[in-house]
Simulated scan of single mutants.
Amino acid sequence: MDRDASFRAFVDAHQRSLLRLAYLLTGETHRAEDLLQSVLVRMIGRWPKLHHIDNLDAYARKTMVNQYISWRRRRGSSETPSADPPDRAYSTEDSAVLRVVLHQALMRLTPKQRAVIVLRFYEDRTERDVADLLGCSVGTVKSQAHHALARLRSLAPELAPRLPALDDPARSEGARR
């Protein structure tokens, strides 16, 4: 298989899941598409060396998270604090509203915390997998997840019953093996 065909096969197999990850990281469809495109452009330029890697999907995800964090550092925060939080005139059982609330709360986490939450709980990866993808220690993943979950609870208390417990042993590395 030639270089272009093998790259196209990789993109065809992983594009949807990579785009979903990009959207969960950025929170915006167009920025997610831009992020995915920038990662794929980087990968095709290095494809002759990359196609020998055993787990290209993990490589692409790690590249995406690093690229996203790099973008966030350069861009700064576009968040503007408000003295008057919006009134909550909805039922907390409304799942569509809860998704919006979760999305807004995720956007207020630091880029690294958001990456840990998305990889750890949305993609249901082990702490070791997340640490490998982010290039950090398992302890860092645990502390980032703990702080991010605590922040999510304070930003959106209505989500608390649906979030993993801060000390949930079923979510720990040992329980997953």
Rank of each mutant, 00 (worst) to 15 (best):
A96V: 11
T92K: 13
R125E: 10
T80K: 09
T126M: 06
S82Q: 11
V118L: 09
S95F: 09
E123C: 04
Q113W: 08
D124E: 14
R108E: 14
L106W: 00
Q104K: 13
T80P: 00
M107C: 09
H103V: 15
S78L: 12
I117P: 02
T126S: 12
V100Q: 13
T80Y: 14
R125I: 01
K112H: 05
S82G: 03
E79W: 15
E123W: 06
A96I: 07
D94H: 06
L109D: 02
H103P: 00
A89H: 05
Y90V: 11
E93G: 14
R99N: 12
R88D: 05
L102N: 10
V101H: 02
E123F: 15
Y122S: 06
S77G: 05
L98F: 01
T92W: 11
R114C: 00
A89L: 07
L106A: 04
A115G: 02
E93K: 08
P111S: 05
D84S: 07
K112T: 11
V101L: 13
T92G: 05
V116Q: 00
R125P: 01
M107R: 14
Q104M: 12
T110Y: 04
P86S: 11
L106D: 00
A96Y: 12
R125G: 01
R114K: 11
G76E: 05
V116F: 02
V97D: 06
F121Y: 14
A96K: 09
M107E: 12
P111G: 09
S77N: 11
Y122R: 05
A105G: 01
D94F: 10
T126A: 15
V116H: 01
S77A: 07
V116W: 00
T110N: 02
L106P: 01
R114S: 05
V100P: 02
P86V: 07
A105I: 14
L98P: 00
R99K: 15
V97M: 14
R125K: 15
T126I: 01
H103S: 15
L98A: 11
S82N: 04
G76S: 07
T80V: 06
R114F: 03
L98V: 02
Q104E: 08
P86I: 10
S82L: 15
L98Y: 01
D94V: 03
P85T: 14
A96P: 03
R99D: 13
K112I: 14
P81M: 09
V101R: 04
S91Q: 04
S82A: 14
V97G: 03
P85A: 08
I117L: 04
L102C: 07
L98D: 02
V100N: 08
Q113M: 12
P85D: 03
T110L: 12
T92F: 06
L98W: 02
P85M: 06
H103C: 06
P85R: 07
L109N: 03
V118Q: 00
L109F: 03
S77M: 00
E123Y: 10
D84E: 10
P85E: 13
S82K: 08
R88I: 12
V116D: 00
D94W: 06
A89E: 11
A105M: 03
S82D: 07
A105C: 05
L119V: 08
Y122I: 13
L119A: 08
V101A: 02
S95L: 13
T110Q: 06
R88H: 12
S91A: 12
S91H: 10
T80G: 03
L109G: 00
P81K: 09
A96C: 09
R99H: 07
